[in-house]
Every structure is written in C-alpha cells, then in structure tokens.
Design a protein around this nucleic acid. Structure first.
Length: 153
DNA sequence: GCCAACGTTGGC
DNA sequence: GCCAACGTTGGC
C-alpha cells in the first residue's frame, strides 16, 4: 500500500467540493512525472493527502482514498475543456487520471510552513519540501504519512 | 542533441 | 504582483 499527496487549487477544486461530491476523477494533470505515477503506481486502496496550493494558507487539508486506478483523462479530448490537449489521441491517450473518494477533512489545515519546521527531521527528504518542487502528484513514505497524521486533529 | 525562449507553478 | 524553479517547445 502506498501513500500520496495531491495538490489542487481550492478555487478550482477544494476538499469541501470533494466532501460534497464524495468521489472525483483527478483530471487535468498535464505533467509526465505526475502522469506516470497516476497511470502506473497508484493502486486501489492507497491513501492520499489533499493539499491546497495557491491559497492564503497552503497546506494539507484532509485525506482521500484511491477507488479507481489509472485510466485515460477524457478531458484531454474535449476542445472546450480547459485542459484540452490535441496531442492526446483517444486511441493512444497521453494523459491519465484516477478516482478518489473523500475520507476526512482535518479540523485545521496543516500549513506548509509547519511541515517545513520538520524538514531536517521527521520529514527529511519529503518530496513536497524539496526546493523548486512543482509536481502536483507526489509520493509520501509511510513514515512521513504517520508523522503528518500525528499533526492533524 | 543543444539550448534559448517561453509558459506555468506556486510560495510569498 | 513578483519571481525562482522547472518543463516544454522548436530552431539549428
């Protein structure tokens, strides 16, 4: 079983939207590294942190679970979609997504700034805290997962 | 294959 | 709004 962290801008799609909808497809990822993880490595039953980016207090806001493994991201085929990519052919899809189910929302956000306090310690080598990291999908180790969970309510 | 130009991400 | 970091594109 693996653990993940997935970023979303709350203005686009927030933990509250997920809570309301129960499940979602994590569409719109247009980065090969992130694509590969969703297509090849994320498995049913894996858990993922929901991270709010590009907002006043960026940080981890809750937990969700993978309920469907990688399959083609159909939004890439739709010319009217914001994430349309003419180079993704339905016969040979370039982009993939997974389905996620809401598990829980933390009472308080665990801010990025707080996670950084543990950068040299419990959260050493965490992908999220690496300089210049812009991946929207990244792995979390079990150790990191367990530690971060102790920071939540 | 190199690399400059450009676009995007995302914290601050 | 600024800007550092990174990814992608495309000419050569």
């Amino acid at each position: 079983m693996n653990y993940w962290l997935l970023k979303s801008e709350p203005d686009e799609f927030s933990i509250d939207d997920l809570k309301k909808n129960k499940t979602t497809h994590w569409d719109g990822v247009r980065n090969y590294q992130a694509r590969n993880m969703m297509r090849d490595q994320m498995k049913k039953g894996d858990l993922a942190f929901f991270y709010h980016s590009n907002t006043d207090v960026p940080g981890i806001v809750g937990v969700m679970k993978v309920v469907r493994e990688g399959y083609p991201d159909h939004t890439a085929f739709d010319p009217d979609d914001k994430h349309y990519d003419p180079k993704s052919d339905p016969d040979k899809p370039r982009w993939f997504m997974v389905d996620l189910r809401y598990m829980r929302k933390f009472k308080k956000t665990i801010p990025l700034a707080v996670l950084r306090e543990f950068a040299g310690k419990e959260l050493a080598d965490m992908a999220l805290l690496r300089k210049g990291n812009r991946l929207s999908v990244m792995p979390v180790s079990k150790t990191q997962w367990d530690f971060i969970t102790t920071l939540s309510d």
